[in-house]
Amino acid sequence: MSLTHYLVLAAILFTIGAVGVLVRRNAIVVFMCVELMLNSVNLTLVTFARASGTVDGQVMAFFVMVVAAAEVVVGLAIIMSLFRTRRSASVDDANLLKY
């Protein structure tokens, strides 16, 4: 048992989140996958903080949480207004930005 286990777990969680972003179409679920990715990164930061013997990593993770909170608030508001105009929360329906 070593810290490597935490890190590998974090990598796997991150990948699951990334794949989720790619395969899910519900914008809210996509958002949750992004949150999962952020959380896995936080786990990495906390683990490295422990390995290096400083709390800087924890502070970083703290900032990540704050920023994630802000991001979620704005992102969900955007999903709301998107849903209001298009009656859909599917990311595939917002495909106007193309050639």
Binding site: S2, L3, T4, L7, A49, R50, A51, S52, G53, T54, V55
Partner: peptide
């Protein structure tokens, strides 16, 4: 990180 030394936060 297989040989990563774990310092621990006991110091801080």
């Amino acid at each position: 990180t297989q040989d990563l030394a774990v310092t621990g936060l006991a110091g801080v």
